[in-house]
């Protein structure tokens, strides 16, 4: 008796490329538990590796704070002062009372702000041109902009010093080298490279269609840039400013060579740390370092408050 024509034939495995259940010769079943353990291990290794750096950063700051606290209480016990006198008798208060440190703080604040403002003013057009346009020599220009980031800071200082031996720079060298303007110039030379990188990344993230639309609506290039692109880049500009400011605050090598370390003249906070260390006053050096840490933290917090979501560009 023949089988019914519509009766299905004996079932054979149907090869299905998308099915995960077919048997592959020589393979083995995947073990869900093994995968779960592997996933946990994956994150554990990454967290430990990344966490090491965070521990190092926090550890350095805590060590500074612990050192200062220890010194404060040492002086309290040795001089028999009351606990309240901690406010006026601690390494930071002592450093802040020093006229030379006061000058150093003011010069740092002013020079870092000037350097950051100039950096952003240069970085906006430079970042825009590199991000939006293709031109001959773009790769070369891109590489040139990395030089201040890669070069040893001392070499930048020395190169600046040599540059001012040649005209037209030589004509103004007397008013710049080893004077206050040299501080701003040395800080700017390095900080601007970071600002340019940030602004390029910012413009890369902004949809170029926005400018195209603005132009079809009747804008000139400058109007499209000013009314559409710049407001979109607001957060990037703020980040570039912060980076340039923080970078300027930490600058030391170029300053030492190009501006010198003259107290009450070209001394900024990083120079103060060096000078205090040179005379063996570690307490004062740590106190000034702590002032720098606090200034950097304040700037970072302010930036985060003003722009809660980084790069929230549509």
């Amino acid at each position: 008796m023949s089988s019914h024509p519509e009766q299905p034939a004996a079932r054979e495995p149907i090869p299905d490329a998308n099915s995960g259940t077919s048997n592959i010769v020589g393979g083995r079943d995947l073990d869900a538990r093994q995968i779960a353990v592997s996933n946990v291990l994956f994150y554990l290794v990454f967290i430990v590796m990344g966490g090491t750096y965070v521990v190092l950063i926090v550890g350095m700051l805590l060590a500074d704070a612990a050192y200062m606290t220890e010194k404060t209480f040492d002086s309290l016990t040795s001089e028999g002062r009351s606990l309240l006198s901690v406010i006026s008798h601690n390494p930071i208060a002592t450093a802040l009372a020093d006229k030379r440190i006061q000058h150093s703080i003011w010069l740092s604040l002013i020079s870092c702000t000037m350097s950051a403002v100039i950096s952003v003013m240069i970085a906006i057009p430079m970042g825009y041109l590199i991000s939006r346009h293709e031109f001959r020599g773009k790769r070369f220009l891109d590489a040139v902009l990395d030089i201040p980031i890669i070069l040893p800071p001392l070499v930048i200082g020395l190169s600046l010093l040599i540059l001012f031996q040649f005209p037209p720079f030589r004509w103004i060298a007397r008013d710049v080298v080893y004077q206050v303007p040299s501080v701003v110039l040395a800080q700017f030379s390095v900080a601007c490279a970071f600002a340019v990188r940030t602004m390029k990344a910012t413009f890369d993230h902004i949809n170029p269609r926005c400018e195209d639309v603005a132009i079809t609506l009747g804008c000139s290039r400058a109007q499209a840039f000013g009314w559409v692109l710049l407001p979109e880049a607001e957060r990037g500009i703020l980040t570039a400013f912060t980076l340039a400011w923080a970078r300027s605050l930490g600058e030391f090598g170029p300053l030492l060579i190009f501006s010198g370390a003259t107290r009450m003249k070209t001394e900024v906070l990083s120079t103060s740390v060096f000078l205090e260390m040179n005379v063996g006053d570690i307490e004062a050096a740590v106190a000034v370092s702590f002032i720098m840490v606090m200034a950097a933290v304040v700037v970072l917090i302010l930036t985060r408050l003003i722009s809660p979501s980084q790069y929230g560009i549509q």
Binding site: R209, C210, D212, V213, A214, V228, P231, E232, I313, Q314
Partner: peptide, 9 residues
């Protein structure tokens, strides 16, 4: 344009 390209600010 395809994505609207609205001005976020």
């Amino acid at each position: 344009p395809q994505d609207g390209a609205l001005f976020s600010s």
